[in-house]
Write a protein that binds this DNA or RNA. Structure first.
Lengths: 187, 187
DNA sequence: CTTAAATACGGAGCTATGCTCCGTTTTTCA
DNA sequence: TGAAAAACGGAGCATAGCTCCGTATTTAAG
């Protein structure tokens, strides 16, 4: 990769993060290019779609998420580790206003961090299921869907952020095996 | 209301439903006006925002949802009634591609049907809480966000639609009071 | 049947954004 | 050092949102 290309890519990521933080994930990409002091053509050459740019700006963060989760999970119950993972996922889904709605797509954008986070989630889920703490029919998509719901809910009003831990707990609780020997509802 | 105004309003609603059905909730409003054979100014005079138009086109449907829910809930447990309500809400969030993302705003658009659906949701939630089948700290907003998340998640991959009933069940299950009240497993 | 006020209509036009395309510039390396 | 390869920049076209105001239609009073 040519030196100027690398430099511009980095500038774009910094600018994109700033602009998305200030104006949300739907902000104008022209503004991003302007803030990076780069032509709009350069932006599109590096990041063909908005999701690609979003995925790239979140890449480091998702790498961190995965790494920290891996480190702490050794000393926690499988369910508690999954709960913390979900809570962090909700947190990252709220980094940019409007990011939550496309969390699923972004996580599939293929960057290293997104991949690491997906892997880690898969690992935690399977561990919890193996320990009998989560029902066998739950899939990672379901957990991601929960993160979306919680993040959306939290972004609706001012008191939202405070409710995140509580909502997270509630949903995780819903993943546990049926309390009656014979399942109560959904099979 | 002047006769021509009423006529144009009706034409707009018919056209909007057709266009949104074909091209999703983000379709061009110019197209809607064109299909209704009405000036774009007329569209905006009747419906100042996209959400207002969406709310109006969904009005009848939401009226139906509320009515049917009211009718059947008498013969169901409070939790089961709430579960069916959520499942229907997810269904209606999917009638136009992309509607789910603004479901919360649309429900607050003030039309009769949106109001009726909101009321019905509130009623079901309170009933379930009064019966001790749902935690007291859950709000209708949380349920609406679940619908949004489930619908969004379902529309993001091919296997989505099949997962709707299961996801609905999982989320509703999470709303039940903690089992800690009667002997828990851990934590 | 006027006729004037009230109401509604229409669409030109301005702004904003997405995205492409290609002439110019910078970098690389033999 | 010089030419090929790579990257840059931003003009420019397409599309959409939304406003504004001159014109047309409806209503109802006389």
């Amino acid at each position: 990769m040519r030196a100027d290309a690398r430099r511009n890519r980095d500038r774009l990521l910094v600018a994109a993060d700033a602009v998305f933080t200030e104006r949300g994930a739907d902000a104008s990409l022209n503004d991003v290019a302007k803030q990076a002091e780069v032509g709009i053509g350069t932006l599109y050459r590096h990041f063909p779609t908005r999701e690609a740019l979003l995925g790239a700006t979140c890449d480091e963060r998702f790498l961190t998420l995965a790494k920290q989760s891996r480190e702490r999970s050794a000393s926690l119950s499988a369910l508690e580790a999954l709960r913390l993972f979900l809570e962090e996922l909700v947190h990252y889904a709220g980094i940019y206003q409007g990011l939550a709605a496309s969390l699923g797509v972004v996580l599939r954008s293929g960057t290293e961090g997104c991949h690491a986070t997906t892997e880690e989630g898969q690992r935690l889920l399977q561990a919890a299921q193996h320990a009998g703490e989560v029902r066998d029919d739950i899939r990672l998509d379901d957990v991601v869907c929960m993160a979306m719901a919680i993040s959306l809910s939290a972004s609706q009003d001012a008191s939202g952020p405070k409710r995140i831990p509580r909502l997270t707990g509630i949903f995780i609780d819903g993943l546990r095996p049926p309390r009656d020997a014979r399942g109560t509802r959904h099979r």
